[in-house]
Simulated scan of single mutants.
Amino acid sequence: MEPLQSVNNISDISIQALATQWISASKMCPGSFSVQGVFVTSDKGVLDDKIFTAANNILHDLCNLLLQGNNFCTLIDKDNIPIIFLAYSIASKKAMCRAYTHDVMGGSFASMNCYFLDKPIDWYAFECCYELDDIFPIFDDTRKINIEDQFQRAISSMKQSLSKCEIFIENAFVDDSLSLEEFVTINRKNEANENYKATLFLPVKCHQGSENFIKVRKFKGTIRLTGVISSRIWCTKTNVLGDVKRFLRNDILRSLAARIQVYCDGLTDPHVSNDVIFISEPPRRIFFNIFVDGTINAIQFSEYIFRGEAPTVAVAQAKQVLDLDVSSENIVTDMEGLPDDEIFSDMSLSNLQKTSTQQIGNSTKYLTRSIYILSISLTLLILLLSVWMHYFFH
């Protein structure tokens, strides 16, 4: 991604570059954070409302581009949440803020107050590991299917399933309305700087007593997603535990969507044949620390690297996308392990066909051997029976 060039007028901002940076930053944010909007600075001493006229047009085009494009991060955060537009004057050190709400007619601004905190925020971290092993059917019967559309259906299905799951924190059921401040007081871990552990319990997809949940359908292919998604989110005492659960769900979906986005960005054509086996090793998630003096638990953002890539890729991305200077010592790489080489080396189409042929050959060999042994056993039995009858009657 090319960095945004310095512009003298807000109307000169590239919408495409802004959307690209928006998507890149969304993939790096944990589930408790999101891209809030657009922040511009000006060297003018006085800010006026004229700046919001141009900003309205920019945000309208930006929202249309994000919603129309095949990017999976906006599929997760597609709620019509107001976008913040913040303008700051370097000369007067004053800011003006508006909340933009998008609609097809062009959108509108509403008044919004903003202020800068004079001290760091204390963050509390929650983490969990989500073991993913799901198979999603493909019902499209065309010769060439759009793999991006199929991934979107898979993400929507996972989003629906996760919305119904129950989340235990520290191996206990917790009330959604309980404030995080009360929960921290009960389960204090600040001295050891430890993260609170969360566990997801997914609902049963089929119930024996309800025939409405069971359907038998023909399909033309499948998408299998398997692996472990590591999740970490950061909250403040003003949050309730219901927020914590929602942030964890969002983080898992966002992490999966980011990897699918990386895979689809590498496709020259989103249309694939429905009779071909495709196997892909997705990138693994790593975290990098963003240290803030005085905080209880420093927050982390994430990046995704492929096998063979150095973790320092996160350093360059943090600088390019977030304008953050990250030290390579602050990168956490042990949350997700690399898959075994044999898993992918043995799962190619030729190997699958070869394995199938070997299994058929082995079955034939074992069947022939069994018949041979059975014939010998019957012959010996008849021989013993004949000897017994000879001595019995004579």
Results as ranks from 00 to 15, higher is better:
Asn212Met: 03
Thr199His: 13
Gly209Trp: 03
Gly227Ala: 05
Arg232Trp: 01
Lys218His: 13
Phe201Glu: 06
Thr236Gln: 15
Ser230Thr: 10
Phe219Gly: 01
Thr236Asn: 13
Asn212Val: 02
Thr199Asp: 14
Ser230Lys: 07
Leu202Ser: 01
Lys237Asn: 12
Ile229Phe: 14
Thr199Leu: 14
Lys218Tyr: 09
Asn239His: 15
Ile229Asn: 09
Gly227Lys: 04
Lys218Asp: 07
Gly227Gln: 03
Lys245Pro: 01
Lys245Val: 06
Phe219Tyr: 14
Val216Met: 14
Ala198Met: 04
Val228Asp: 07
Lys205Leu: 14
Thr238His: 15
Gly209Leu: 09
Arg232Cys: 05
Cys206Thr: 06
Lys237Ser: 14
Lys218Asn: 11
Cys235Trp: 05
Leu202Tyr: 01
Lys215Gly: 00
Asn195Asp: 03
Arg224Gln: 15
Phe219Val: 05
Leu225Phe: 11
Ile223Ala: 13
Ser230Ile: 00
Lys237His: 13
Ser210Phe: 11
Thr236Met: 14
Phe213Trp: 02
Gly227His: 06
Leu202Ala: 04
Val216Leu: 15
Lys218Met: 08
Ile214Pro: 00
Phe213Cys: 06
Ser231Tyr: 07
Gly209Asn: 10
Ala198Pro: 02
Ser231Pro: 05
Gly221Asn: 09
Leu225Met: 15
Thr199Asn: 13
Thr226Val: 12
Lys245Ser: 10
Ile223Glu: 12
Leu202His: 01
Ile214Trp: 07
Leu202Cys: 03
Asn195Cys: 04
Gln208Gly: 00
Thr222Ala: 15
Gly209Ile: 02
Ile223Ser: 12
Cys206Asp: 08
Arg217Phe: 08
Cys206Arg: 12
Ala198His: 02
Lys220Val: 01
Ala198Phe: 03
Asp243Met: 09
Thr236Phe: 12
Asn195Gln: 02
Gln208Val: 02
Leu241Pro: 07
Lys197Glu: 04
Lys197Arg: 10
Lys205Asp: 08
Ser210Gly: 00
Gly209Phe: 11
Phe213Glu: 05
Ile214Met: 06
Val228His: 07
Thr222Cys: 13
Val244Gly: 12
Val228Gln: 11
Asn195Arg: 08
Asn212Ala: 05
Lys220Ser: 08
Thr226Ser: 15
Asp243Ser: 10
Trp234Val: 01
Lys220Leu: 09
Thr226Cys: 14
